[in-house]
Design a protein around this nucleic acid. Structure first.
Lengths: 210, 210
DNA sequence: CGGAAAAGTGGTAGTCACTAACACTAGTGA
DNA sequence: TCACTAGTGTTAGTGACTACCACTTTTCCG
């Protein structure tokens, strides 16, 4: 059992579900090429100093095409097809856990999952995101949206009404705390990050002694 | 004692500290005029659909001047001179409180303070901010920055090392939870909002029963 | 009081993210 | 093989924001 292997994302097109025609294959390759070009250029020059035109040129497409693949300049960096294809948070968890254990379970899964992928687990990418306020904001945004979904699932799991006050407070507190702790980490050893998150959860569960 | 009266912001220029020359007076009036124009137009047409040129025209200045007063289009709405001039969070609190009581104290002060002001307490403004993702993001940003300052002050107040792990977790949790609760409120009765925040703090202090 | 310095303003031109419309090409499915 | 469709490049445009320059007004000081 455990976490299933992430699908390949490198453009070979052996993964997906239904149609693996020439067209589909080409699209995946282009998408990956744009991502790679963006990361390369942004690491060199910084995100703000890199223009969409440059990225497009490097990936050998037009700027228009860039925007057909990614709705914004930030998106090319923060987006992550792997996570996108994942079910919403907490879905598929074994029943009967406490809210805290449920989060622990989800966090562990998340890290395991992304660690196996070239893009999602890419250290340079993570570092890049932390280096630019626009990227930080965009990621925050994405995070928030996921939490919105998570709230409903969590409420259901716990047998509480949707949009339950306690559930909202819980998730807000957990994610807020995690954000504070994960964000300023200089060197993002993945294992260290997981440990920090677990420490946060322990602290919140037992009550913060302040 | 208690909270001091907010300075006037309406352009009469009887408030500030040192120089109340013609120039300074004019600047305040212009600043207020731009704000008013922006709010009026954005409430009518929505924030996204309102251009800086329109706002500038309505306030009878050039677009260039607009950007001399406000660094971005969002800034004209989310910014708040009152809060800007306030000391950082937690400064001036009576000693010896717990972290939770300290936050309660700060929140109460904050609400009292802003309630007395035309701009900071403006309901339309609050509603407008909630209506547009760009404004929400910008406000979040401002909030985050304030919390950064607050962390240091809080650590010092509690006699802990700066950037203490527990302090960071505490503030992250508190603000994250508050965000979740305050944000989706349809009708922002100020007193209701305060009550919600207090409920959040109680919940976090006692431990969330989940 | 008068005149130089400083501060504020408008206009022009330019960059960059992003969108809409159109014509073109290449994979797809019958 | 032949229409159909999806993907692409080009062009033109909008809107936020910046840099620069010339002009006016306030302030400061001898």
């Amino acid at each position: 059992m455990s976490v299933s292997t992430p699908p390949d994302e490198d453009g070979t097109g052996t993964a997906g579900d239904r149609p693996v025609g020439l067209r589909e294959r080409h699209k995946r390759r282009t998408r990956a090429a744009i991502r790679a070009a963006a990361l390369r250029l942004c690491l060199e020059q910084g995100f703000a100093a890199t223009t969409v035109e440059q990225i497009a040129a490097e990936a050998e497409v037009s700027a228009t095409t860039f925007f057909r693949y990614f709705p914004s300049k930030e998106d090319v960096i923060i987006t992550d097809d792997l996570l996108e294809d994942r079910p919403p948070m907490f879905v598929g968890a074994p029943p009967g856990m406490s809210a805290f254990d449920l989060v622990r379970w989800e966090v562990r899964n998340l890290f395991e999952w992304s660690a196996g992928d070239d893009w999602a687990g890419n250290r340079d990418r993570v570092r890049l995101i932390r280096s630019d306020p626009a990227l930080i904001a965009a990621q925050q945004d994405l995070f928030e949206r996921r939490i919105g979904e998570g709230t409903k699932v969590l409420a259901e799991y716990l047998g509480r009404p949707l949009d339950d006050f306690g559930v909202r407070v819980f998730l807000g507190a957990v994610t807020g705390a995690i954000n504070q702790v994960i964000d300023p980490e200089a060197d993002p050893e993945p294992d260290l990050a997981v440990q920090a998150v677990m420490d946060v959860l322990d602290l919140l569960e037992r009550g913060i002694p302040l």
